[in-house]
Amino acid sequence: MSDPILSVRDLAIAYRTGRKESVTAVSGVDLDLYEGQSLALVGESGCGKTTLGLGLLRLLPGLGEITSGSLTYRLKDGGRADLLKMKKEQLRRFRWNEAAMVFQGAMNAFNPVIRIGDHFADTLRDHSDGRRWTKAAVEARAGELLETVRLDPDRVLQSYPHELSGGMKQRALIALAIALDPQVLVLDEPTTALDLLTQRSIVQQLHELRKKFGFTMVFITHDLGLAAELADRVATMYAGRVIETGSARDIFHGPKHPYTAGLINAVMPVKGERPALESIPGYPPSLKAMPEGCAFNPRCAFASDECRRSRVELELLTERPLAMDHAVACRHHDQVRFQRKQKENANV
């Protein structure tokens, strides 16, 4: 297998909260992604998913900053580049062309006074060097993309954002994000706040887009059902760290971190039986008051005195490389026994 398309090493991201104060929102993240893989970042809110996602493209807001680590991409021309070493102009070229982002709450991301068609024109013109985008070329490209997400280009290109439903806006935004054919697409909560049937149609379209354009996908969600549906690989985050990563089957059939197992157990199944409600006690810690040792220890049924003193790094459970492996950061992972409670119900 060739090199990963994206390699993250020891990434840390902090937000400045005062003149001399800052909080670390993400730390020690190692991730590898092969071309064409789709990775889900899961975890409760506040655990750093959005921060990491923005960091992957160096799109952090003013107060956020990558404080250490490296972010290596394999570019379209085959070369490799550390995003953290790129100058402003290189970054501008990198974004949209090499990697693009669909932001959280993106339904409100369109400028309300600009027609959808002009959003496409602006994006295509601002981000491609050396190519002139005539009106006809913009319309052809936008039309092709919108049709792929099952929108009617004639209607949608002329529309203002408020004239579209939430689901239509989300689909238009995904189409816009891939307008310059990026290799990597990061989507933050792409279906949250959408109706169930709209979610389903977005999921279906993402499957189709990946088949057609073959991009690598990182998507952020707190919906484990969505992760199971769309991801080849899953990374669980807790308190700013990736604490488990593996294939979707590794994670959903045999989670090894007590937190991942807890998240899966807390999902209430709609189909089939109605097992007792389970929950993870307590709340994720505040960034300003991180517990000593393993950050999960106050909520963990397996915590030992050692856990309260020190933390362990992500450990590979097999000999496979990181982008294929199941890895976990828990010193008692061999005690975690996961029993899938839910039975399939053919009737529904």
Binding site: Q199, R200, L224, G225, A228, E229, V267
Partner: peptide, 19 residues
């Protein structure tokens, strides 16, 4: 039926069937 059929369960094997 469509609403219930659209639910994603946290199991990649069920998800495949769902598609």
């Amino acid at each position: 039926k469509a609403l219930i059929g659209a639910v994603c369960e946290p199991d990649p094997d069920l998800a495949r069937a769902n598609q």
